[in-house]
């Protein structure tokens, strides 16, 4: 009995130690990437390549996600609002929800899935095939060369994707609201302009920027932490996606509490 308790305490201790070690590694990685962001040489070509990959290459999937989200959300709100005869409020309700929550969060989840995974897989593969060692031997800092452009690329791209999400989502809701649910076009748009405020859009953009940074740092961190061969790359990629998505959802809660107070 005593031995079993001791073993369980030991296991708990090991788990806590591993978590602390992971936290320490992540903090160290974060500070290193911040340090190397401001050190020359500035690699603009690599940054633009990442903006193209994370931003431009995600536009189609953002288009699909946002158009259907806007349309479905409009339809669901219509069902509820119709009961209290307030169906003309579909426009502002959908747009506010898109601007403050849906656009940044869903764009974040899409980018975490698509690009966070790609970052971890690319860097992880380079790690296990000694390509990162090759960079270091040449005197090139691998954090600066591989992590910084990806983190900055995600930080710049995600607010832009979120803005596209908002516009397309609004378009989807407008289409369903005015064409399918027969709400007057003038009423739909005028209600949106009556209720929407710049602060709401700013809230969404700030959230998307923070999510972009976090997805970038989580994706690259899990790439650099890969150990072993193909299995390690798979594990790192999986961790990048899971932690990327969880982080977006958890941080969204805290950002909402904070930004609602200041904006």
């Amino acid at each position: 009995m005593k031995a079993m308790v001791e073993k369980q305490i030991e296991q708990l201790g090991n788990t806590v130690m591993q978590m602390l070690q992971g936290l320490g590694d992540f903090t160290n990685f974060t500070f290193k990437t911040i340090f190397w962001t401001f050190k020359p040489p500035y690699r603009f070509k690599l940054l633009f390549e990442q903006i193209y990959f994370i931003g431009n290459k995600s536009v189609f999937i953002i288009f699909l996600t946002s158009s259907f989200t806007g349309a479905v959300f409009a339809y669901q709100i219509y069902v509820g609002m119709k009961v209290i005869n307030a169906d003309s409020f579909i426009g502002p309700l959908v747009t506010i929800a898109l601007a403050k929550e849906l656009a940044p969060v869903l764009s974040g989840l899409v980018v975490a899935g698509r690009c966070g995974a790609a970052m971890a897989a690319q860097i992880g593969t380079m790690k296990v095939t000694e390509q990162i060692d090759a960079l270091e031997v040449m005197g090139i800092n691998s954090y600066q060369y591989l992590a910084v452009p990806r983190i900055l690329g995600a930080t710049i791209s995600l607010p832009l994707l979120s803005a596209i999400f908002l516009m397309i989502g609004y378009g989807g809701s407008w289409l369903i609201g005015t064409k399918l649910l027969q709400i007057d076009e003038v009423i739909f748009t005028s209600k949106v302009s009556d209720f929407m405020e710049l602060g709401m859009v700013a809230e969404g953009i700030i959230k998307a920027t923070v999510f972009g940074y976090l997805i970038g740092i989580i994706g690259t961190y899990h790439g650099f932490m890969v150990q072993g061969g193909a299995e390690g790359v798979g594990k790192g990629t999986n961790m990048a996606v899971v932690w990327g998505m969880i982080t977006v959802l958890v941080v969204d809660f805290f950002l909402t509490s904070f930004l609602t107070k200041i904006l």
């Binding site: 593969t125 380079m126 095939t129 000694e130 390509q131 060692d133 090759a134 031997v137």
Partner: peptide
């Protein structure tokens, strides 16, 4: 000052 050839070449893929 160093050049290095890695076990599996480590060329950038």
């Amino acid at each position: 000052n160093f050049g290095m050839v890695f076990q599996y070449a480590a060329l950038f893929d």
